[in-house]
């Protein structure tokens, strides 16, 4: 049981745990060292309430539907607590938006144009930084994807993969977040200004442990940060209070 939360993340046992059991067990040793904080509004998306070192999280969404906002927001709390982060392959990063999302710009490097070597660049960064956000230019090669996932696990860094559709990442993810935008608010036909976007984020993936969580979020809220909209329970009743809070 140790192996699931607190043991070696590379252990294959975590994946073999029965779904029901995986949902019930709780850590018996401190997990704080293995977790990287996320903004409070995003904690309900994660079984541990935080990004887990060594894990791979995919963030999928059509362009313009908020996936970049969500992916960048995953770096915010980690960078604020002193973790180094990197964003690879975001060609035109909105630095102001990143700052508004709470990212400490002193702790984040951008590699906007890694070219064909995006996977190698991400692989170079995984030993040095705690969170690597990578956007492959198209569908990732299976070998490159598998290598990166293994390297993240081995180096105990969190890998966040930004894709248009989850199928563009052949390795799947420990956790898969899909973003669907609902609507922008604050803007009308010729008046107001963009204030916030409501979005639905659905969580799946092998580490979601059978929880089908769906969250309503502001991606972003009018202040530029991510925030919880009213949360709707998933089909199995799993709500935001189901998981432990961010360490």
């Amino acid at each position: 049981m140790f192996a699931f939360r607190a043991g070696d993340a590379a252990s294959p046992r975590s994946r073999e745990l029965p779904v029901g059991l995986a949902d019930r067990i709780r850590p018996t040793t401190p997990v704080a060292g293995r977790l990287l904080p996320v903004p409070p509004a995003l904690a309900p998306l994660f079984p541990d309430g935080a990004l887990r070192r060594g894990s791979t999280t995919t963030v999928a969404g059509l362009p313009g539907h908020g996936a970049t906002t969500l992916a960048l927001a995953l770096l915010a709390a980690a960078s604020q607590t002193g973790s180094w982060c990197a964003a690879v392959g975001l060609p035109d990063p909105g630095v102001v938006a990143a700052a508004e999302l709470g990212i400490d710009l002193r702790r984040v490097v951008f590699v906007p144009h890694p070219g064909q070597g995006w996977a190698e660049v991400a692989g170079d960064l995984l030993p040095g930084v705690d969170v690597v956000l990578v956007r492959p230019p198209g569908r990732a090669r299976q070998t490159a994807a598998r290598h990166l996932v293994a390297r993240a696990r081995e180096r105990q860094a969190a890998l966040v993969v930004l894709v248009e559709h989850v199928s563009a990442w052949p390795e799947g993810g420990d956790l898969a977040l899909s973003v669907g935008a609902l609507a922008w608010e604050g803007v009308g036909r010729g008046h107001g200004h963009l204030q916030g976007r409501r979005a639905e984020v659905r969580v799946s993936g092998r580490r979601s442990a059978g929880r089908a969580v769906e969250c309503s979020l502001w991606l972003p809220a009018p202040s530029g940060v991510v925030a919880a909209a009213e949360v709707e329970d998933g089909p199995d009743g799993a709500g935001p209070d189901d998981g432990p809070k961010a360490a």
Binding site: P93, V95, A98, A99, L105, R106, V108, V109, F110, V111, P112, H113, P114, G115, G117, E120, V121, D124, L125, L126, P127, G128, V129
Partner: peptide, 17 residues
């Protein structure tokens, strides 16, 4: 790790905002 990326892609490839 940043230096490794700079070796691969050039000094200007790794940016901070």
């Amino acid at each position: 790790s940043f230096a490794r990326v700079q070796e691969r892609l050039g000094v200007d490839a790794v940016l901070v905002g």
